[in-house]
Design a protein around this nucleic acid. Structure first.
Lengths: 123, 123
DNA sequence: TGACAACTTGTACATTTGTACGATATTATA
DNA sequence: TATAATATCGTACAAATGTACAAGTTGTCA
């Protein structure tokens, strides 16, 4: 239980961290490859972002060959919880319903998806 | 159709803008009152944020007495659309389903809420 | 083993963001 | 009509953010 007061994440850091989770672990190179070309960001920038993520305690790295392989040190769930909470707070004043409604209407969601959700509801 | 390339909103700006929508229109004073005391932010700061929101084109103001009354110039829907989109992009790679799932599980949502959502789905 | 390619490190730097003070203007009030 | 109370305006300023170059380091391959 080391996780405590994690510093906040900037949008770009969040974007990169998500890829690390998705890949389980990754080098700067690999992260760059996962980013859409349209993102138009240099290797050096991704590297800086990873450096900051490590400094903030969200990832660590081991060395493989001459490259660093970055590994998450924080559960995705933890960050999602906080991020979603903050987001709903500032955009909807804390009420998640409006967000769900918005998604139901504009999120390319169908009735089946909704049906699936019912199973998840913690009743 | 003036709305075009609106500058991005910072978290704090978003927070304040939401209150303007909620109140329909408001003075610095009124916005301050709506903010939870725990937010611990001064009048001057709120004023700066409103100033920036106006400069960015999200609100305008009229003068009432000696105070400014700020009024939204952008539809809430417009900002929600963009904000939610960006958010889902960076935290979930663009797929809204995981977010819905997360909310169904941890968003204090009940089965009825879900049932309601079905009516909204654009099928 | 020497040069090249792939990396990391150190640094930089313009903007944006969050926060707020002090001076000035304006309105209500005693 | 002085004054107090309330506002705005101009400014400031440190920290965070986004972006990236240049120099130094280390495997690798001919």
């Amino acid at each position: 239980m080391v996780r405590k007061k994690l510093p906040s994440l900037s949008p770009s850091e969040t974007e990169i961290l998500r890829l690390i989770w998705q890949l389980n672990q990754a080098t700067v190179q690999e992260v760059c490859e996962k980013l859409p070309v349209s993102r138009n960001i240099t290797y050096a920038t991704v590297q800086t972002l990873l450096r900051r993520l490590e400094k903030k305690g969200y990832i660590k790295h081991k060395t493989k060959g001459k490259a660093h392989v970055f590994i998450p040190t924080v559960q995705q769930e933890t960050v999602i919880k906080r991020s979603v909470g903050d987001f709903i707070q500032r955009l909807f004043g804390g009420d998640p319903i409006p967000l769900m409604q918005y998604l139901a209407q504009h999120g390319k969601i169908n009735t089946e998806d909704i049906e699936e959700l019912k199973k998840l509801v913690d009743k």
